[in-house]
């Protein structure tokens, strides 16, 4: 009897760009709003300007978010917006994480073999 095809492990669906904890946080905040101010995101995630900038550059290069520069009165202001790819990437990442968790639950629920 031929072996049944083994489904790929959910960990393989994790995207290295998105999976990083801070970047997941950035995408999650942006997914709940049309645009978010740089300073708000920095305070929300408890990061420094430099640290947030580094993660934003990576996400921008992957075209997962867009940086919109403007002015508020005379003060320069940076707004961040999730792209369609960013939304899809976040959804896929959360789905992969949920699959991992359900796999763990199934594994722990299985009765231990008797010795």
């Amino acid at each position: 009897m031929p072996d049944r095809p083994v489904p790929p492990h959910p960990a393989l669906a994790l995207d290295d760009t998105v999976h990083q904890r801070v970047r997941l946080g950035i995408l999650t905040v942006l997914s709940e709003t049309r645009e978010c101010k740089f300073a708000t995101l920095r305070d929300e995630l408890g990061l420094t300007d430099g640290n947030l900038n580094r993660h934003l550059r990576i996400l921008e290069q992957a075209e997962l978010l867009r940086v919109v520069k403007g002015y508020e009165g005379r003060r320069p202001c940076t707004w961040l917006r999730l792209t369609r790819q960013g939304r899809a990437a976040l959804r896929a990442e959360v789905a992969a994480l949920e699959q991992l968790v359900s796999r763990l639950r199934d594994a722990t629920a299985e009765p231990e073999p008797e010795s």
Binding site: E98, L100, V101, L104
Partner: peptide
């Protein structure tokens, strides 16, 4: 199981 627990925490 550590990876799984970490995933639960992240979620």
């Amino acid at each position: 199981s550590t990876d799984g627990k970490r995933s639960v925490e992240i979620l």
